[in-house]
Design a protein around this nucleic acid. Structure first.
Length: 104
DNA sequence: GCAGTGACTAGTA
DNA sequence: ATACTAGCCACTG
């Protein structure tokens, strides 16, 4: 699970569903959320690159953290949309974007 | 063991 | 476009 998150390259993001699928657990997006919840700041896991299906960071009850997460992603080169959302078509790390731009 | 909650997703209205 | 519902699985009370 954490290995998958660590494999997300800089400037890329993945959805919970993608991480779950890559971790061998398709459909268990909530499990990913729980796993990251149990993470520590010392885990060296780029949990910031994990976002929900809308391309937005999750608030986990502390909006401040989401704001920090967004800043980190921007620093990595991730461009946010008009609503503070990420363009998943460009930054999504997954089977449909690995090395190829998603048409349409 | 059952019920409630949760860093989610997809479908329907 | 948003709001609500159902499905999904793990953890807590």
């Amino acid at each position: 699970m954490y290995a998958v998150v660590r494999r997300i390259p800089c400037g890329r993001v993945a959805t919970y569903g993608d991480v779950a699928a890559l971790a061998g657990r398709p459909g268990r997006a909530r499990e990913v959320g729980w796993a990251l919840h149990a993470l520590d700041a010392e885990s060296r896991v780029p949990w910031q690159r994990v976002v929900n299906a809308r391309g937005e960071v999750s608030a986990r009850g502390e909006p401040a953290a989401a704001r920090v997460q967004r800043a980190l992603l921007e620093r990595e080169g991730v461009r946010f949309g008009s609503s503070g959302r990420i363009d998943l078509a460009k930054h999504r790390w997954g089977p449909a974007s690995r090395g190829k731009a998603a048409p349409r």
